[in-house]
Design a protein around this nucleic acid. Structure first.
Length: 355
DNA sequence: AAGCCGGGGCG
DNA sequence: CGCCCAGGCTT
């Protein structure tokens, strides 16, 4: 990336227009009620990879349940995951709680206001660190997210591939040069708000843009072609038989997922990798793995669930328990108790096939 | 540097 | 339905 990008750029004019526009047009969002570092932190973690409209109700409920670092630190992880249920990227919730516990034990419950300590906390990377420092503590630190990269690649006509780590990194010194020292919070939030409301990925509303006069892409009519970004590769398909496994009339069998990896520590209905398996072989696989004898019955439906790098193709079957061992990693619960456990969305959809 | 982590919205 | 969005951690 060229290092003279800002040589003939009117930084002060850009700052003034951006901040004035932000002050006049910012949305009233729950995490903007005050600058409480804890609220800023929680909101920024939730907002990673997640749209504002999706986050709002989760944020409200989360703040009622866990209003401060002490309440979150002392909570049961399953309750935290339950509050995160449906939001996705569940490691965010587990890392947040782990980091909050560190704040309580190492920093007397005070969220650090310096980048060294803040950046070491679990789940706080370069973006979140900058967002907390600028929004909660008014420090002139860059907070480069996808919105900021899109806005700046247009304004400065940057044509490097923003999917590359080294290109992402180069936005930080640029923002450091551009950021308002008087109001870094409004500057960073203004960039992100502009990216969300005006400088959108498709059909940006350049006619309403407060920094149109500073935008090199607009000058060239090139805004629709920026940023340059290579595409992710296609996710792999994985087929499963997913079981609505009943034990008597009232009980249903669920299991807790592993501590690591996909959907860690969430609950699910038992799943059998089904590639090339007959239903009978699936029953045998299940008995070999869990020690439970089961009989797979009626095919109840199918679900497709798309993750970033994976597609689950679930064939849903009803099944009955023929024999259950005394001790097992499977759990038998009353159907009415299912709502107490955190389930991924794919398995929440499976519940519709229960009767 | 590349792969792993969810879920929702849009056309 | 396919396509787009996108921080942080792990390998």
């Amino acid at each position: 990336m060229k290092d003279d990008l800002l040589n003939h750029f009117n930084i002060q004019g850009f700052q003034e227009n951006l901040i004035a526009w932000y002050q006049a047009n910012k949305r009233n969002l729950p995490w903007r009620e005050n600058q409480d570092p804890y609220r800023v932190w929680v909101s920024e973690i939730m907002l990673q990879q997640t749209k504002v409209d999706t986050v709002i109700p989760y944020f409200q409920r989360f703040m009622e349940k866990f209003p401060d670092v002490y309440r979150l630190a002392s909570a049961d992880e399953q309750d935290v995951l339950k509050a995160w249920e449906g939001l996705g990227y569940y490691s965010r919730a587990r890392n947040l709680q782990s980091a909050v516990r560190e704040v309580v034990s190492e920093y007397d419950g005070k969220i650090p206001d310096n980048k060294e300590a803040l950046g070491k906390l679990k789940g706080i990377g370069p973006y979140t660190k900058g967002a907390i420092l600028s929004i909660a503590f008014q420090q002139p630190e860059p907070a480069v997210d996808g919105n900021v990269m899109r806005v700046l690649s247009r304004v400065l006509h940057i044509t490097d591939n923003i999917a590359e780590a080294k290109v992402k990194k180069q936005f930080e010194p640029i923002v450091t040069k551009m950021i308002s020292k008087e109001d870094p919070s409004s500057f960073n939030q203004g960039l992100m708000e502009l990216g969300a409301m005006v400088c959108t990925p498709k059909s940006p509303l350049c006619l309403f843009c407060p920094v149109q006069e500073y935008c090199r892409a607009f000058l060239k009519g090139d805004q629709e072609n920026l940023p340059i970004k290579s595409k992710a590769k296609k996710p792999k398909k994985v087929a499963y038989i997913a079981l609505l496994l009943k034990q008597g009339k009232e009980k249903i069998i669920i299991e807790k997922r592993k501590e690591q990896g996909l959907l860690a520590n969430l609950w699910q209905f038992p799943m059998i990798p089904s590639k090339g398996k007959t239903v009978h072989e699936a029953e045998e696989w299940f008995e070999a793995k869990y020690g439970w004898a089961i009989q797979i019955g009626k095919h109840a439906g199918k679900l497709k669930h798309v993750f970033t790098h994976l597609i689950w193709e679930l064939e849903i079957y009803e099944a009955d328990v023929l024999y259950a061992p005394k001790k097992s990693k499977l759990k038998s619960v009353n159907i009415h108790e299912l709502s107490q456990y955190p389930f991924p969305v794919s398995h929440q959809k499976m519940m519709k096939y229960l009767h």
